[in-house]
Write a protein that binds this DNA or RNA. Structure first.
Lengths: 336, 336
DNA sequence: AAAGTCATCCAAAACGTTTCGGATAAAATC
DNA sequence: GATTTTATCCGAAACGTTTTGGATGACTTT
């Protein structure tokens, strides 16, 4: 059907070896024949069969992206899209393609991480959105497949990761509230199945400590990153600790829940309660009052993850790469 | 390196033919040897080399997803993620994998649609987010590659499409405003490079007509689906036609722009102006007042697109498949 | 003139499967 | 007992590349 190297060889009156070498830029073919071959290939509208090539070279020019629970009612990956765009951009120059795997932990037909990658012969994988309890995590710790994780700290001789400096970011957010005069600061955290939750908690604690504010465990609620979770956590926090004047959230989505809860309770933001989020999703700037939050450069996270993965594939040493964040001050927190 | 069919053959003392046929469920191998082979394959942790298989069968079990301008500052695909999740779900049973292509129209290295697909040997493709002026559109009209488009009406013997009934949806949204007593209804439409814009305009006109309200061209502004576009369009509309009491938007994002513009102008929603959107993005229910809008079942669109594509690959006839929508009434439009 | 160098080319093997067209022996049929 | 059928197996070709290890002849060097 499709035109092959053989057709070109016949038409050009040379061997298929020569065609292959001509097209791939090897030096041992004269400019004259190279030009001829190229011209014929062009005419015949030849495209190399990547499958055949892959079979012999054992390279596929594909990397896998593995993401868990792409969408789940109520939960969604606020910045999956940007990370994805970043990855695509990072892969572009090296002409790698991306094959997308979604895994859901509850699924029966759960294939192992290695099997998933080997089946499709991806040369490496980028992993995002796995819970710490996911069985893949353990597997990845021992894998020989080049892997880059996003927001999951694992570092071996084949796997690296990129993330924001969550400790520092949470530290800054909390410090900001403290600087505004708040002393009773709640923290609506993510679930305990995410590494970032612990890091952000650490940053929160650090900020309190540095300002001689005692850490109170009751002020911290582990929600689940969702809006609904934020909604409930807010109410609990406010009912049980009405002295709280500010709340830091481990995600903007949860902050949105707090907005709703505050409205239900007749509380005004920021007059009655100051809120700070984390992520800077699109929503954050659109809602009223606009949400003060930590912006993560998610495009860059994806881009960097891709670049780093290619480096690992080339044999470089995996690292932990930190992507800069930024506190974006808007209108949801006020001076006390 | 990896264990092959040959290793199994040797260990089982049979030919590679028999191993292949045993593993693939052919009838001409005794249950006894089949079991033995299966056991050995299991022991050796054999995974078939999909590349080698692909080379001989000329099937890759992959379909491509082609999306343009995945993210662009300010523009984003509000429901790309859900469509994607739907596609993944639709592909799951048939064990097809998804390879993601992003194209940007301005790019120099623009390969043709056919080349893109052929390079990777995808068996079919789902296309989303192309502008009508994109050169791919013309190419797709003539392609022999099984293709399903989302929201782009092209129907040939190899390409079908899925979409909402945009005419009807716009008709319903506009009729709803009319029923509330509005007569001077503006329409902030998308750009002219999208088929849905014309369909929604048609629905808008139909509703006016049916209710004997004259169509006024000045009431319609073609924005670009973005928030910024909505913001500007709202101001223009309100300045030039202060008699307008309601505005229908071709996207929620543009409605968000109107929210902002209204706020800037000191207008209250819905007291001073009634707004209706289109899409029902997450934001719509979170914002205050919650936005009345048309919900598209985007997950289902993706799911249906995938299923239909598989059908086309199997040889079935391409169709136009309509996905049901729904008017979601919230708080952004009031009775006059 | 012999030996070495260089530029240019090619035959054949290899990658790991699937599949076509038998081969073999046992069982069934006449 | 000869023939046909059936169940079970296998050798070899094929898919479209890349790559190895030369081969060939012309040109240089001694």
């Amino acid at each position: 059907m499709a035109v092959t190297i053989k057709d070109i060889a016949k038409k050009a009156g040379v061997s298929i070896t020569t065609v292959s070498r001509a097209l791939n830029g090897y030096p041992d073919v004269s400019e004259e024949t190279r030009e001829k071959i190229k011209k014929i290939a062009e005419e015949l509208n030849y495209t190399p069969n990547s499958i055949a090539r892959g079979l012999v070279t054992n390279k596929t020019q594909t990397i896998g992206m593995i993401v868990s629970e792409l969408i789940k009612p109520g939960v969604y990956h606020p910045f999956f899209l940007e990370v994805l765009a970043g990855i695509k951009a990072g892969l572009k120059k090296d002409r790698y393609d991306l094959i997308l795997f979604t895994v859901d932990p509850e699924s029966q037909d759960a294939t192992s991480y290695e099997k998933l990658c080997n089946d499709r012969k991806v040369e490496g994988a980028i992993v995002e959105g796995l819970r710490l309890s996911d069985p893949y995590i353990e597997e990845i710790k021992g894998t020989q497949i080049p892997t880059v994780l996003i927001d999951i700290p694992i570092l071996t001789d084949k796997v690296g990761y990129v993330s924001s400096d969550n400790v520092q970011a949470a530290f800054e957010a909390t410090s900001y509230l403290i600087k505004l005069g708040h002393k009773n600061i709640g923290f609506i955290n993510g679930h305990k199945d995410a590494a970032v939750s612990f890091e952000r908690l650490e940053g929160y604690k650090k900020a309190l400590e540095k300002n001689d504010i005692p850490y109170r465990e009751e002020y911290v609620i582990f929600a689940d990153f969702t809006q609904e979770g934020g909604y409930n956590a807010f109410k609990t926090l406010i009912f049980e600790h009405p002295e709280i004047t500010a709340i830091f959230h481990a995600s903007d989505l949860m902050a949105m829940g707090s907005y709703r809860a505050a409205k239900d309770l007749g509380m005004r933001i920021p007059e009655d309660i100051s809120l700070v989020g984390f992520d800077d999703i699109e929503l954050a700037s659109l809602i009223t009052p606009a949400l003060t939050t930590i912006r993560q450069d998610t495009f860059k996270m994806g881009y960097t993850a891709a670049k780093h993965l290619l480096a690992i594939i080339r044999g470089e040493k995996p690292q932990h790469i930190v992507i800069p964040h930024k506190l974006v001050v808007r209108d949801s927190a006020r001076k006390l």
